[in-house]
Design a protein around this nucleic acid. Sequence first.
DNA 1: CGTTAGCACTCTCATGTAGAGAGTGCTAGT
DNA 2: ACTAGCACTCTCTACATGAGAGTGCTAACG
Lengths: 356, 356
Amino acid sequence: MTDLKDHGKLGSRDREILKDVILTYILSADPVSSRSVAKHGKLGLSAASIRNVMADLEDWGYLMQPHTSAGRVPTAAAYHLFIGSMMEARAVPAKERRYIQENLKGGAADELMGSASHLLSELSSQMGIVVTPAMGETVLKAVDFIPVSGRKVLCIVVSSTGFIDNKVIETEEEIPREELVRISNHLTESFCGHTLREIRERLLRQMVEERAQMDRVLARTIELARSGFSVGETPGVVVDGASMLLSKPELSDVQRVRRMFEAFADKARLVKILSQCIQGGGVRVLIGEDSELTSELDFSVVATAYAVGDRPLGTLGILGPSRMDYEKIIPLVNFLGETLSQALAEAFSGEPPERR
Amino acid sequence: MTDLKDHGKLGSRDREILKDVILTYILSADPVSSRSVAKHGKLGLSAASIRNVMADLEDWGYLMQPHTSAGRVPTAAAYHLFIGSMMEARAVPAKERRYIQENLKGGAADELMGSASHLLSELSSQMGIVVTPAMGETVLKAVDFIPVSGRKVLCIVVSSTGFIDNKVIETEEEIPREELVRISNHLTESFCGHTLREIRERLLRQMVEERAQMDRVLARTIELARSGFSVGETPGVVVDGASMLLSKPELSDVQRVRRMFEAFADKARLVKILSQCIQGGGVRVLIGEDSELTSELDFSVVATAYAVGDRPLGTLGILGPSRMDYEKIIPLVNFLGETLSQALAEAFSGEPPERR
DNA sequence: CGTTAGCACTCTCATGTAGAGAGTGCTAGT
DNA sequence: ACTAGCACTCTCTACATGAGAGTGCTAACG
């Protein structure tokens, strides 16, 4: 509707004032008035001048008023501009770095997910979210078959990054324990190092080709592998600190709280939103209009991918009111993404974990 | 403060009226007036008579008024009485039974926990909670060690009921894969069928006795076993449908919502509350004053234990406003407890799972 | 003696009004 | 180009008012 693109319109004074408004609003949560900018601002302008500029900024689409004679509030466009070219990121303080690294050391992969989610929430005072990898994309470390009863077999798949998934499968005939052990070892040795997706495809091909001349053991092996390697198609979500959001003034209305929680109940939706951030190295920020979840509620998502080597595994990030301290949170999410990637790599590929 | 014990004081008319008040309140959520009881009630009494009785009931401690000239609201004592001797439990309808059984069939143990929690929430419109067993109390089915890097070993413990826990342990020296496989098999065979707690104790004794003359392999075995079998000391909690509670009128205040969620963030507390229900066969109901969590918020817990054979594994139940439909919910929780127990037993001890 | 009708009393809740406060937009003056 | 001043608008709070709901009490009734 308005000429957002034309940033040339924004003089350095306009930018200064917009920045001031955003920073003040992030801090206070109330619409900010021309008076307060005039008083607090560095540039010695009067409220009236500020008002002119703010009226312009509103025309450009960077500010809006909840109603006449209220102060002004930044729009999503303003936040984008702020993040893109006015923000001064504050590096994560050494104390927090240490705290994060200590809490993200050692432990199994699923514990790491939980810790990361909790750290995100705790240090940002927002809700922390971690999307765990779909097993299909991970690299096989080992597979194990355990007889449970009759023809039922518990299949456990371990990825090279320490993720574990399991599944009960039912075989055509009962298979003795010793044979299951042999098959486990055999499959582990032959497929270790490939992604489950590759393995599934290869097995499928093999099955079609050799269907005729398969011997009994091979047939059993392939049957087990086929079923077992189909675990974990969909990624999981670990959420922490939802109660953090309840203290935000933007959630003082129970109706909004309810809508929010109903949105969260749909994990698949969260995954979809977060997964938009998996490509591209850095931190991505989705504000308001960018996604259906956040547009209704004026919420934003700051997220990044974590990876081992060049293989992206999942994403992690925080969700909170659009009015959030991006200067702190963006570096925080970035650092957590890096640290988690590193923790996963160190724990499961032999790097020395000691480093003080 | 008042003579709750003396139920003799309650004539059959008093009981009838109290019951009416409770049922009405459960339905409507507003304080119920003498008028509404007189109108709706079966006994052809006038409002004034009802008033007298209600005043008495208030003296006995079964009713209270939020303020003068509001209707009356049942107290925790009233609910207890209602549940103990006035309620007519409504059996779970056949349709719901089938729905539950279909959703609780097959699958791995952790999926069962999730499904049970979801079913509880969905069918009761309250929050569903399942406490998963502490691994220490479960019976070992198999153990597996998988090398991850250097001296790190991933240990996977499977219980006979299909629960899985895992842990990364660090050994004193690097152990080759083949030896880990041998040790896994050896430990599985020798300890299968005992609880982890027993195994830990036995290992400790053995270690002390034979410390001197242990050979290298045995030492390694015991080292691995000691660390590996110490997984899962604390039970986990699976919660579902927290957003159900947000639509209850008793949570129309954001402050209360916040307190509630903060209370839930402390999983240990939930476990403690639910665990009160593990002993004794049937369903237990904790109302208001019974626990710190619920007393602040006028919430109640309806819970029961699930078990395989005579070994109780964990508890499951629902949490919601004290004003809930006990006649429906108590049988529901009971049925879910039985069905979950059965599902766990069938899936992992060879019973025929087919039954239509 | 239990039951009921009537009535005064209390408390809540919704509504309406008034005034204060905050913030803006506009205009005229510097 | 900036600023001071002023009228205007809108929200928020406090306060008063009245309706409605429900009780407790008392006196009358079968």
